[in-house]
Structure formats: structure tokens, C-alpha cells
Simulated scan of single mutants.
Amino acid sequence: MSQGIHAAAAPKAVGSYPHARRVGNLLFLSGIGPRDPVSNEIPGNVQFADGRVQRYDIQAQARAVFANVRAVLEASGARWEDLVDVTVYLTDMLRDFRPYNEVWAEQFPDPATAPCRTTVGITALPTPIAIELKCIAQLKEAR
């Protein structure tokens, strides 16, 4: 049996899906981006009048996406330390990998206890964001 979870402190999903789904002692998070949960704005984005992105700050977006992941984990009864696997989607791997990696190291200073990670370069995401995370956590007790 699985349980869908919606986190009030995280940005609303951009589609019809839960923030996370718990199956036994595993927690699967849907793709999470850096949108602000209150204003829905994207940290670090500067846009032209027509809405196209003029420039963005990958580190501001990375810190925001980590905060959103934390909010979903907490709403799910999980902790940061429960993360076991993270897939990172970057829209500009060449430009953003190094500065993103610096923020990753702030969040997970000890590589021995950090979750596994795969980073993938993609051409676009469904909103004008430069990063999205897909996470799996292992909870201590199954329901």
C-alpha cells in the first residue's frame, strides 16, 4: 500500500501528482524545483518583460530546491539524513555543474554520508527553472 503526500510548506506541484509517495519504508519524491512556496517566484531569475529568462543564479536556485526537498521530507516524516539517492537535472551542465556542486558540498559536507547522486544535463524543464531534483529516501520504519 502506498501513501501520497502533499507538503504545505513546499511549492505546489505543476501537474496532478503528489510531492511524494511512501511505499513501505521508501519515500519517492516527485521532481522538485526551486520555486518559492509562498510567492511562486523563482529565486535568482531575472526575466525580460515577455517572461523569457534573461539570466539566473544557479546557486540561489540550488539552495531553494534543497529547502523545498527538506520541506517535503519533513512533511513525510523523513529527515535530511534519510536521503539515499538524488537525481539532479541541470539545463546547462557546462555552465552550472561546478557552482551547483559547491552548493551540494554545503548541504552534504561529508561524502561518506551523502546520498548517491546522478547529474543529468537536459534541454528544458516545464517552468523557467535551471534545476530539478528527484529524490529517494529510506525511512526507519515501514507503515
Rank of each mutant, 00 (worst) to 15 (best):
A112R: 11
P37L: 10
H6M: 14
A9T: 12
N25A: 12
A114F: 01
Q54N: 09
R79E: 12
R79K: 13
P43D: 09
G121Q: 00
I136Q: 13
N25Y: 03
A114P: 06
W104D: 09
G121T: 00
I42T: 10
A124G: 05
T91S: 13
T119K: 05
S30T: 02
V120P: 02
A105F: 02
A9R: 09
F48K: 06
P11R: 01
G51Y: 05
A130E: 06
M1H: 05
R55H: 09
G51I: 06
D110G: 07
D110T: 09
V120M: 08
D110R: 11
L90W: 03
Q107W: 10
R52G: 00
D36K: 13
W80T: 04
V69W: 02
F97Y: 08
A114N: 03
S76W: 04
L29M: 12
G15C: 08
P18T: 12
A142L: 00
R35E: 12
A7R: 09
A78P: 02
V103Y: 02
N68G: 00
Y100L: 07
C135E: 02
V38L: 15
G33Y: 08
V53F: 06
G15W: 10
R35H: 15
L139F: 14
F108L: 02
G44A: 08
R35N: 13
R95H: 10
G77L: 05
C135F: 00
F108V: 04
F28S: 12
L133K: 08
A20D: 00
R22H: 02
G31L: 12
V72I: 13
A71I: 11
V72L: 09
A75P: 10
L26V: 13
T127N: 07
A13S: 15
Q138W: 14
V65F: 03
F97D: 07
M1F: 00
M93Y: 06
G44D: 06
Q107R: 10
E106Y: 06
L73P: 03
V46Y: 05
Q59C: 13
A130K: 06
A124K: 07
R22V: 06
T91L: 13
P43K: 04
E132F: 00
V84M: 04
V14N: 01
I136M: 15
E102S: 07
L73H: 02
N101E: 11
G77D: 05
A67V: 11
F48R: 08
E81S: 12
T91Y: 08
R70T: 11
V53A: 04
I32P: 00
G24F: 00
G31T: 05
E81L: 01
A9D: 14
R55K: 14
I136Y: 03
G15M: 08
S30D: 02
P128S: 08
